[in-house]
Design a protein around this nucleic acid. Structure first.
Length: 225
DNA sequence: AGGAAGATCCGCT
DNA sequence: GCGGATCTTCCTG
């Protein structure tokens, strides 16, 4: 597909649903890498949520890195440590889930070294398993790309909210990332952070080009990660 | 105690 | 493309 075109429902992305007994939870070492690397390497990995006997799986197709305290777009900018963003300072491999705009939850992966307030925002996933439940929660049919093509939308589809803030993804929690084959990844500017000045220009958004569950296509020529 | 802003989404034009 | 929704969190006074 040409760069810059808006994705449509006809841009079918079809990856096979995984066998449940072969899901391999990613270890803490994965999250302990530098945050830009975690953001890049998370594209293609599986987001898994077991809850009440049901399993939801999505393939991560878009992420963003936030690297406080120097990154002025991060909630941890300037070393500002509050109850809300406390999870960012903890050990890697935990979830940082926050509420914005009075109605939306966003899911992040805490990355980097313990004490470094870095995180990776999950901005888009391709539904692989449990699609009907996602569709009910999103109040739309299962064939729509709007099911999970944004950070707030995928949290609704996966039932992620304040209960998941601070959860250890590498322990026994029902929420975790599972390994999957690497895929093509390109970079783009981050979304919705124009207040961050020069930091808004960093190409710290990572996505699988052409996948219809990417929230917005990158501008201009595609640049590899 | 009050106010402003926000890592977005949705519906309408 | 644009504006309204909606409310928690944090900063200021």
């Amino acid at each position: 597909m040409p760069a810059g075109r808006t994705y449509t429902d006809s841009d079918a992305a079809h990856h096979a649903p995984p066998a449940l007994d072969q899901l391999r939870r990613l270890p803490r070492q994965f999250y302990g890498q530098p945050v830009l690397e975690v953001a890049r390497a998370s594209v293609g990995k599986l987001l898994v949520h077991h809850r009440r006997g049901r399993t939801l799986v999505g393939r991560i197709v878009e992420t963003e890195a936030y690297r406080g305290p120097e990154d002025l777009a991060a909630h941890s900018a300037g070393g500002r440590r509050t109850p809300r963003n406390e999870a960012m300072w903890g050990p890697p491999g935990h979830a940082y889930v926050f509420f914005v705009y009075g109605m939306h939850w966003h899911l992040n992966l805490v990355a980097g070294l313990d004490g470094e307030p870095h995180a990776v925002l999950i901005r888009g996933v391709e539904p692989l398993l449990g699609v009907e439940l996602m569709a009910r929660r999103r109040k739309m049919t299962a064939d729509r790309r709007e099911l999970t093509n944004g950070p707030g939308k995928l949290c609704v589809a996966f039932g992620i909210d304040r209960r998941h803030d601070g959860v250890d993804l590498t322990g026994s929690s029902g929420l975790y990332l599972a390994d999957a084959p690497a895929t093509r990844v390109v970079t783009a500017r981050r979304v919705g952070i124009d207040y961050a000045g020069a930091w808004a220009k960093r190409r710290w958004r990572f996505l699988e080009p052409g996948n219809r569950y990417v929230s917005r296509p990158p501008e201009g020529r595609l640049r590899g990660a």
